[in-house]
Amino acid sequence: MVEIVKALMSEIFVCSVDQISESTMRADLDNWDSLQHMIFVSRLETEFKVEFSPEEINDIDSYTQVIEQLNRKLNN
């Protein structure tokens, strides 16, 4: 899962996979703007067959947040 998320982030936010780590915040990636954020969420939903609520979408502000939320959803 971690690899897929990183690959998606690197594709959508146009950055290298190495740039993404536990400490990556939304502000760290130039292209992680509100529009790309929504496109990212949509790709996550399709990829992992999950759904995020609007509140969750707004809460996602870092790479670790994405992984945590996904873990919670996939383990339920």
């Binding site: 529009l35 929504m38 496109i39 949509s42 939903e45 609007p54």
Partner: peptide, 18 residues
């Protein structure tokens, strides 16, 4: 249409069809 994406980001066509 995915209304969540419409109301949050003004995406008229659901982004999963991009």
């Amino acid at each position: 249409i995915d209304w969540k994406f419409y109301y949050m980001a003004k995406m008229y066509f659901a982004p999963k069809h991009n």
